[in-house]
Design a protein around this nucleic acid. Structure first.
Lengths: 136, 136
DNA sequence: GTGTATGCAAATGTTTTGCACGTCC
DNA sequence: GGACGTGCAAAACATTTGCATACAC
């Protein structure tokens, strides 16, 4: 909850820009792109340059606080790591629904055992049509 | 095997550029980017513009012959669809290993049932360190 | 021959970088 | 005070687009 302390614990400075980025990501219901973050920060008082936002999210991803997501749009989106989940992305209307189920049969640990490959993360997204778009 | 006929069956023209792209992708062991495809085509005689390659892969992906892959590099890679598999991507040396196991516990069909969401495709990649990079 | 694909060049969109100045601790 | 972060502007890179010409069928 207290991002100031969380950042300190991670060994990095708790700057205004980083706190702003985390604060924006705390209030979203689905992954957002850099432009969204910049705009959101600008709305709440003193703004922030987009180069800074790029540098912030890069750091936050590296520190494991933020997850980078790819919806095949030619740009990345970001969300707080929080609880582990995947996404259902509708190709019709763009709606994004989180999936909290345990989706993987071959877990990260299985892969370590079978392939001698130490998995640090995996990315899984489902693409298709939501009920509304499918029935049209 | 005969891409000329495969393209015809898909209802699109079997042009030199499309056949070249498919031919390049037939000879790779891991997903490659657009620049690689352009260069490979240029090496084998009459070349091909990169705009054309972009247009070709877009069509081939749409027709289900080519798969677009994202290794979090800020650009996409492509490979023939062939048999379904996922990837282990080493963050250390960039090595890519295919995984032919059935990785998903929550299949596309399960999702249709549980979430009323018609899955057309899913993207799954594992990131981490290969044995060599991990032991260093 | 006709409709579609391609080449070329320019434009667009995303992300990165260099450097002077500001801020965190 | 000193190291590190930020703003600004420019650059780099991936991808897309408009239009005249070439090609597939």
């Amino acid at each position: 909850m207290d991002y100031h302390n969380i950042l300190k614990k991670k060994g990095v400075r708790a700057t205004r820009a980083r706190l702003s980025v985390l604060n924006v990501l705390q209030n979203i219901t689905q992954p957002v792109d850099i432009a969204y973050i910049v705009e959101a920060i600008n709305k709440e008082g003193r703004g922030c340059d987009q180069a800074t936002v790029y540098r912030c999210v890069e750091l936050l991803v590296k520190k494991g606080l933020v997850r980078q997501v790819d919806f095949r749009e030619g740009k990345y989106r970001y969300e707080l790591v929080g609880d582990h989940h995947h996404h259902l992305v509708c190709s019709g209307c763009g709606k994004v629904e989180p999936v909290y189920d345990d989706c993987l049969a071959l877990t990260d640990t299985d892969i370590v055992d079978k392939y001698s490959f130490k998995v640090t993360e995996h990315h899984l997204e489902y693409f298709g049509l939501c009920q509304k778009c499918h029935s049209q």
